[in-house]
């Protein structure tokens, strides 16, 4: 006796494919976000008035708190109740750089852009001393950047 085989209907699993595509979009979104290393740099903004939303900023210069100094046992050394930190570190678009290279890097990043697009965002830790942050401002100024200080808006009491 012969049985007739039904032809199998094979259809693409569209629902699963949509799921996969959506998850891929999420994956690339998260990857793009983590590519920006500025999220992992430790710094606290200074408080002041006159803050406006920053737009068209392509260049970010950050000065962090400095690395926590560890003792022989790998524990942070304390000073005045806080972990002692080393010299503040300088970052250009999330990458650690030296002070000497800053002008060159900022100038290269800004290129021939018009003044409205020459914004350089400065994220300077609030305890950084003038001996560190003033040369940075000078370097940005020499490279033709328009300085914007990222601050925390101070609300009047």
């Amino acid at each position: 006796m012969k049985f007739k085989r039904r032809p199998l209907e094979v259809t693409a699993p569209y629902v699963s494919m949509a799921d996969i595509a959506f998850n891929l979009v999420l994956f690339f979104l998260i990857m793009a976000k983590t590519q920006d290393d500025s999220n992992r740099i430790e710094w606290d903004p200074a408080r002041s008035t006159g803050a406006q939303p920053v737009k068209n900023a392509k260049v970010t210069v950050t000065v962090d708190k400095g690395q926590v100094i560890l003792d022989q046992n790998g524990k942070p050394t304390m000073k005045d109740g806080k972990p002692e930190r080393g010299e503040p570190r300088l970052y250009f678009n999330g990458q650690q750089v030296g002070m000497r290279d800053l002008t060159e890097k900022v100038a290269a990043a800004l290129g021939d852009k018009p003044p409205t697009e020459r914004i350089v965002v400065l994220k300077i830790h609030n305890e950084t001393l003038a001996s560190t942050f003033e040369p940075i401002m000078e370097a940005v100024s020499q490279a033709g950047g328009e300085v914007v200080h990222v601050i925390e808006e101070e609300r009047p009491n």
Partner: peptide, 22 residues
């Protein structure tokens, strides 16, 4: 999706400073 979008859409605020030259 909305959590990722919301966390990346935080807008920075800053104060522009005109500096003729150091």
């Amino acid at each position: 999706f909305f959590v990722v979008c919301a966390s990346s859409a935080q807008e920075e605020k800053g104060r522009p400073q005109q500096m003729p030259s150091a």
